[in-house]
Write a protein that binds this DNA or RNA. Structure first.
Length: 590
RNA sequence: CGGGGUAUAGCGCAGCCUGGUAGCGCGCCUGCUUCGGGAGCAGGAGGUCGUGAGUUCAAUUCUCGCUACCCCGACCA
């Protein structure tokens, strides 16, 4: 490809709307252009990156036994009504009507359509297992799109769906996808981690996320160096007190008497810690939250410096699904006191305490009366002994749930998510098969997503410096760029650049020849901004010795290469750069 | 959905308070000089000032409506 014929532009100034580095660089390098909020055009340079990612995904999906299909972006309400999601899905589902008044939506995902395809074709266990996938545009009407491509409303996703006869088959299909995902992210060349995850709204009970590691990542990953355990903070369990080695002792005996103290305007744990004596630091205070769910309400007790995990709260029988914090009005009606003054003493609701409070004694808490707290409170003596459960978000420094080490933290960007769906959709939409034993039952499904376009942003978040993007070789828009210096006035440079370009093309190298006759500074700055991993500079200075200059994007120093040996040299560099494994951190549960 | 802000040339911004039909930097075009990390000089092109109404002799500027975009919030007591 010649730069003069390619759509290659860049800008020195950073667009005001872009908050994160990947968005800024993508706009500056003209990878994308915004069309509307959360909706972008991919321009040629950006589309090459997307295409390279898609191709790797496609190859590995095919290798893992997937068959590619292409489903419509526009889906009829009818299918969504069959699965029950027309009502269940909220405002993120973009709905509209056609000229006849029939209702449609833009697909945020394709379980309904794929289940409809499969139920029409598959009636016997003999036809299974199968795995169908597509690379398609999705639309989710996010409340607030931001961070450019990272959280866009329209985006490209690879979604695969597996169909099996029984649970063992579904587990096999899931494992095949898990392995394929590792190969995909190995090949793309990003540092990532596979973590245990919550299955969220899609359903099912077994799920992993693939997270690209980047300091700017929105998700917190907790992992254990010793065992390789890794989990999303939303999902990471904590050990029950009985099995946590550091907390196996009995609860200390009460030392203090319970005392009611006036605490005007003390609403937060920080304010309480400020107000109380030195000895009562936040972790010795107890905070109490009222959580409501489908089964009812409960008072949830946590250490002052811990944070509530609503997913875990929803797993408690007293609370149930759709767990949420009570509103101020609800709290005042139920308890007679507002936020910040709640506690377990004389609490009319069931008490559930986090494991971390199992050994709490002489603690401070709200008095269920505005502007009053108790100190010296003890379970059993002053209030009932609560039921203990895993309720808090795990944190860096906790004992790892694997029992072997301590949890460390890392930030990540979710780029892949795999689920076992079971019969959630096949049951609702009547996708059943005849089993070997003559019975009929719903097909067991799995679904497997990769955010193709988000990977571009994640790669830039992970790989950039003050000069621009640093793409891994496998997904860079071009592998190599040739920069001729002052070609217009040097026939020798022009000729050499052309020869090298043709030779590399013939050797199958993905090479861009910058034939725009820019000044060297502009050319180099643009190369760096675009993150093209390898660069050959051809100038009169080197040609006098029959040499051209090679530079790798991240290296400061250049290497002189004989013009006659350049193809061989470049091929060797490209091969060593794409050799997998070296830069990949692939710890995770096995 | 609530709060705040913005809308002026391809991009980044000034002008508006105090009304008189628009300017800067980058980019773009022409010429000359340059040519190894976003060159210099000279000349030039490019704007119904988001949109609709109102006030006024006169509105980019003041007033109101609308639209789009951005930020914050919408769970940690």
């Amino acid at each position: 490809m010649r730069a003069s014929q390619f759509f290659i532009y860049s800008d020195k100034s950073t667009p005001a709307e872009a908050e994160i580095i990947s968005h800024q660089l993508m706009l500056r390098a003209r990878l994308i252009r915004k069309v509307a909020s959360g909706i972008y055009s991919w321009l040629p340079m950006g589309w090459r990156v997307v295409s390279k990612i898609s191709e790797i995904v496609r190859e590995e999906m095919d290798a893992a036994g997937g068959a590619e299909i292409f489903m419509p972006a526009v889906q009829p309400a009818d299918l969504w009504q069959q699965s029950g999601r027309w009502a269940a899905y909220g405002a993120e589902l973009l709905r509209f009507s056609d000229r006849h008044g029939r209702e449609f939506c833009m697909g945020p995902t394709h379980e309904e359509v794929i289940t409809d395809i499969v139920r029409a074709q598959i009636s016997s266990y003999r036809q299974l297992p199968i795995n169908l996938y597509q690379i398609q545009t999705k639309f989710r009407d996010e409340i607030r799109p931001r961070f450019g491509i990272m959280r866009a409303r329209e985006f490209i996703m690879k979604d695969a769906y597996s169909f099996d006869t029984d649970a063992a088959g579904m587990a096999n299909s899931y494992e095949a996808m898990r392995a394929a995902y590792c190969r995909i992210f190995d090949r793309i060349g990003l540092k990532y981690r596979m973590v245990e995850a919550d299955s969220g709204a899609i359903g099912g009970n077994f799920s992993h996320e693939f997270m690209v590691l980047a300091d700017s990542g929105e998700e917190l990953i907790l992992y254990c160096q010793e065992s390789g355990f890794a989990a999303n903070v939303e999902q990471c369990p904590q050990l029950p007190p009985s099995s946590a080695p550091s907390a196996s002792a009995a609860r200390p005996a009460a030392q203090q008497t319970m005392e009611k103290i006036h605490t005007p305007n003390v609403k937060t744990i920080a304010e309480l810690a400020e107000f109380l004596p030195e000895a009562l630091r936040p972790e010795q205070n107890m905070k109490t939250m009222i959580v409501c769910g489908d089964n009812g309400s409960a008072a949830v007790l946590l250490r002052g410096n811990d944070s509530l995990n609503l997913i875990k709260a929803g797993n408690q029988a007293e609370i149930g699904d759709n767990a949420r914090l009570a509103s101020l009005a609800e709290t005042q009606q139920l308890i007679g006191a507002g936020f910040g003054s709640l506690g377990p003493v004389n609490m009319p609701l069931p008490l559930i305490a986090d494991y971390a409070l199992h050994h709490a004694a002489d603690f401070a808490c709200g008095a269920n009366e505005d502007d009053y707290h108790y100190t010296g409170v003890n379970f059993e003596r002053d209030c009932p002994l609560p039921r203990f459960a895993d309720l808090r978000n795990a944190a860096v420094g906790d004992p790892s749930p694997c029992g072997k080490g301590t949890l460390l933290g890392a930030r990540g960007i979710e780029v892949g998510h795999i689920f076992q769906l079971g019969d959630k959709y096949s049951q609702a939409m009547n996708a059943v098969i005849d089993a070997p034993d003559g019975s009929q039952h719903p097909i067991l499904m799995g679904c497997y997503g990769i955010g193709i376009t988000r990977i571009v942003a994640a790669a830039i978040e992970q790989g950039h410096d003050e000069n621009g993007m640093i793409f891994p070789d496998a997904i860079a828009p071009f592998s190599l760029i040739i920069c001729p210096i002052a070609a217009q006035r040097s026939p020798a440079v022009r000729l050499a650049a052309e020869e090298v370009y043709q030779a590399l093309r013939a050797a199958g190298v993905d090479v861009l020849l910058d034939d725009r006759d820019l000044r060297p500074g502009s050319m180099f700055a643009e190369c760096d901004l675009l993150g093209i991993p390898h660069r050959l500079t051809i100038g009169e200075r080197g040609l006098q010795n029959g040499e051209v200059e090679y530079k790798q994007r991240q290296e400061k120093e250049v290497t002189l290469v004989a013009q006659t040996a350049v193809v061989e040299f470049i091929q060797e560099r490209l091969q060593s750069a794409t050799r997998p494994g070296s830069s990949v951190d692939r710890a995770g549960p096995s």
